[in-house]
């Protein structure tokens, strides 16, 4: 379960500030996968960062029933460690969480096979393409054996064949672990989410929740992506 109570967040950059959320409250039930939609600048990434714990600069309360949260950043290069190999990047959070490393290595082989990984784990992140970095970031999150998987535009750097593979994988994966994702492609979030939360353009407007089967995504949201 994810519970947000009176979340307020202001975004400041170069003396310009913008109120993203004002006393936003919502609850997402266990085992429910949710797509977070909205125009650019509506706070989708901020919401995911607040829920994952990456962003602590907000007021209000976030309650998670999940003990381990996997998080895939919009720009994976930002949170991969370029001084460690891909393998170490993937296993480091798992090792820190006290999970079995041998099992982790077996899982890694299994996921690498499913996702048809075509690069060596002994490389360093700076040697990888954007898509490969995104896959690395996903593997790192998966190996944490999360109880909630948060994905911020997980397909943005992937080519079409890899996108299909990852989507197919996540479609099956969400049966055991709910997803919270941002994606601009209807064919992606409609397959991976049970419902959609649509963030408004202005913080004073209400957040809309819609069952994914009934989503009528406005042209404006798609065009602004």
């Amino acid at each position: 379960m994810i519970k947000l109570k009176n979340i307020s967040k202001q975004y400041s950059h170069k003396k310009v500030s913008k109120q993203l959320f004002s006393k936003l409250s919502l609850t997402i039930a266990d085992d429910t996968s949710v797509a977070v939609l909205g125009k650019n600048g509506s706070g989708k990434t901020s919401m995911l960062q607040i829920i994952s714990g990456v962003d602590k600069e907000y007021t209000g309360l976030v309650e998670l029933s999940a003990n381990r949260v996997g998080y895939v950043n919009q720009k994976p290069g930002e949170i991969l460690l370029p001084w460690f190999t891909v393998k170490k990047n993937i296993l480091l959070p798992r090792e820190h969480a006290g999970l079995d490393i041998k099992k982790g290595e077996r899982l890694l082989v299994k996921y690498a096979d499913i996702l048809n990984i075509d690069f060596s784990f002994e490389k360093y992140p700076y040697m990888l393409s954007g898509g490969q970095q995104q896959i690395t970031s996903l593997l790192r999150a998966l190996l944490l054996e999360p109880e909630l998987l948060i994905l911020d535009e997980p397909f943005s750097a992937l080519d079409s064949s890899k996108r299909k593979l990852v989507k197919s994988f996540l479609t099956e994966y969400r049966c055991s672990c709910p997803l919270l994702l941002v994606s601009h492609r209807k064919e992606e979030y409609s397959q991976l989410a049970d419902e959609a939360i649509i963030l408004p353009d202005k913080y004073c407007e209400k957040v809309r929740r819609i069952n994914i089967e009934n989503v009528e995504v406005s042209e404006a949201i798609l065009e602004s992506s």
């Binding site: 990456v54 950043n73 949170i79 460690f84 959070p93």
Partner: peptide
């Protein structure tokens, strides 16, 4: 950019582990 640090802090890395790895 502190994003990397914030991410690993969210995984409850201790100050020592943050220093050692990041």
């Amino acid at each position: 950019d502190k994003t990397r640090l914030h991410y690993f802090r969210s995984l409850n890395f201790s100050q020592f582990m943050l220093f050692k790895n990041i």
